[in-house]
Write a protein that binds this DNA or RNA. Structure first.
Lengths: 196, 196
DNA sequence: CGCGACGTTGATTTGCCTCAACGATTGTGG
DNA sequence: CCACAATCGTTGAGGCAAATCAACGTCGCG
């Protein structure tokens, strides 16, 4: 039963009672997206915070020239939303698109507030995962400032091996902040290095 | 009375009772740093979360070549710490240095947990400010990926005019991810543009 | 089979860095 | 109160990492 995945995820940070668990589950909405479908589109309001049960999504910004810039990839057990849009009901800065068939639990803003009001431990849960997300985000800023493209690529492969395998090359390039052509050249140079 | 600044900051997000306020204040520690002093140094454990009463700090990473990369500037009413180090008691990735004489309230990890245990609304408070911080951090990632140096500089001046004025040029450059020499050239080119 | 999405390759260009030297401003001790 | 050092900012010459552009391979799929 897939609800267990979510309860498991939460139980790593806070301990809910049986009643709290069932209250939480009573508020859950499940939704399934096909490959290529959008959970949110830039400009729309992001009304849901989604917990990924299975599949994979990319959150990205499209600039004036039409180039994509990937904010994050999300796999099973991760949360995704355009947080800024979600919390202040303003138009989303980002698109969230499913790279594969993806199944999620979704919470509206009102539902999430209701849950946190009734189960204060959830405030703590979200606080803790936000702390982790912020640490990761700041680390990425620093890496983009201090490392070369090839160093960033190697770190990405090491830290997100499953993502590197399941998404297209051009998305990896976009995440790293380089062009797909240049990433292609980097990978070629790595092969030659290993041979010599 | 400077404790009011902190209570004010919190009251923008959650409403504490009189007893809660005084419990919170009873746990407060004040500390003053001189210009140039460090709140944390890379490699040490960051034992405090600091709320800035007055002054200004920079949080930065020093790479192997000795270059500084600024994660964030913080002024009055902001929180700063090496969050990763603070929550998991591991060596800090970053330095936090005072750019001016700076006065802060400090909370140890244990104190913060005690506060949140006794006042669950504080979990919500921290959740909300973390949400905002994460939005800002992700926005910066996207900007670094999608904008040129001059665009980033102009946005920085627009969004953080007070910081642009009080910190050295080379720190602004480091925040933007460019060299001080190149920033100097950018500023010169802006002057010529306005004349013609 | 033929089309569309993705990846590769090479030629050329460019945004930004490096290095080195030189002002300007500030603060500090004699 | 001046001299001098330290710190910060500016300028220019030259170099490199990565972008751009254009063409061509390749693979999966309707």
């Amino acid at each position: 039963m897939k609800e267990k995945v979510l309860l498991n995820c939460i139980s790593k940070y806070v301990q809910l009672t049986v009643e709290e668990n069932s209250f939480l589950l009573s508020k859950i909405n499940t939704r399934k997206y096909l490959k290529g479908q959008y959970i949110v589109q830039q400009g729309d309001v992001c009304n849901f915070n989604s917990f990924i049960i299975s599949g994979c999504t990319k959150t990205f910004y499209t600039d004036k020239k039409g180039n994509e810039h990937i904010v994050l990839f999300a796999e099973a057990n991760w949360w995704c939303s355009d947080l800024g849009s979600f919390i202040s009901k303003t138009p989303a800065d980002y698109n969230i698109q499913c790279i594969e068939t993806t199944e999620v639990f979704q919470f509206s803003y009102a539902t999430r507030e209701e849950l946190c009001d009734n189960i204060p431990k959830l405030d703590r849960f979200f606080r803790k995962i936000l702390e982790k997300a912020l640490v990761t985000s700041q680390k990425r800023i620093v890496r983009n400032l201090s490392l070369s493209a090839i160093e960033r690529y190697l770190l990405f492969c090491k830290e997100y091996p499953t993502i590197e395998q399941r998404v297209s090359q051009y998305m990896v390039a976009s995440y790293l902040g380089i062009t797909k052509e240049f990433l292609s050249k980097l990978k070629k140079s790595l092969i030659y290095e290993n041979k010599s």
